[in-house]
């Protein structure tokens, strides 16, 4: 059965330490000046009760089920594979950068070496194919990232998604991202 790979980014557990970013760089040999993933620490934001906290935004490909980048690619170099992962076939890419502009999540950049667009692949080529979790998930010190197959009800990700409140970025665009965010409830919450 085909898989439906997805990821959870838990804002309550994320500490913005960038371990994910470095692990991604090491595993996928990302050139220095670009990033497949960053965690933006936003804030401090003020809650209604006056307390302050930070939000953590994982900036990377969200692997839409209905990806604009795939839709606009003139040569089908951008495609969504059988496991629901959005990938780029660099051989087919002409470098029109339509996908770069069309991505509402600014997930794509132009690789300075290949001159083709690049982005997070959930480590499809570097780790998933070997049965390993994506690099960022493997190292995340506080388990803020969960990766798995939504088609498998016993997978941890399926269980967490059915248990915790999550949202997807820019849902109104109908892109159906497979990056689920657990919103931040730290700060301002008197327990």
């Amino acid at each position: 059965m085909a898989k439906k790979y997805a990821m959870i980014h838990d804002n309550n557990l994320c500490i913005g330490c960038q371990a994910c970013s470095i692990a991604c760089r090491a595993e996928n040999k990302i050139p220095n000046e670009v990033y497949r993933i960053q965690v933006w620490i936003q804030g401090p934001n003020q809650h209604a009760d006056g307390s302050l906290n930070y939000d953590f935004h994982r900036q990377s490909c969200v692997h839409c089920e209905n990806p604009p980048c795939v839709k606009v690619c003139p040569t089908k170099a951008s495609y969504i594979n059988q496991d629901g992962i959005v990938l780029i076939d660099k051989k087919k890419c002409v470098g029109c950068l339509y996908c770069v502009e069309a991505c509402p999540y600014k997930a794509r950049y132009v690789d300075p070496v290949t001159q083709a667009p690049d982005k997070c692949t959930f480590c499809y080529e570097s780790r998933l194919s070997r049965g390993e979790q994506p690099a960022c998930v493997t190292v995340c010190p506080t388990d803020a990232l969960i990766f798995g197959d939504l088609n498998n009800p016993s997978d941890k990700i399926s269980q967490v998604i059915s248990r915790k409140i999550t949202y997807q970025q820019k849902e109104h665009l109908g892109t159906r991202p497979k990056m689920f965010i657990v919103p931040n409830t730290q700060g301002g919450k008197i327990r």
């Binding site: 330490c17 960038q18 371990a19 970013s21 470095i22 692990a23 760089r25 090491a26 493997t138 190292v139 995340c140 010190p141 506080t142 388990d143």
Partner: peptide, 10 residues
């Protein structure tokens, strides 16, 4: 938990 931070990853 088999984890490492950004510094460790570098």
């Amino acid at each position: 938990g088999g984890k490492v931070c950004a510094r460790g990853g570098a």
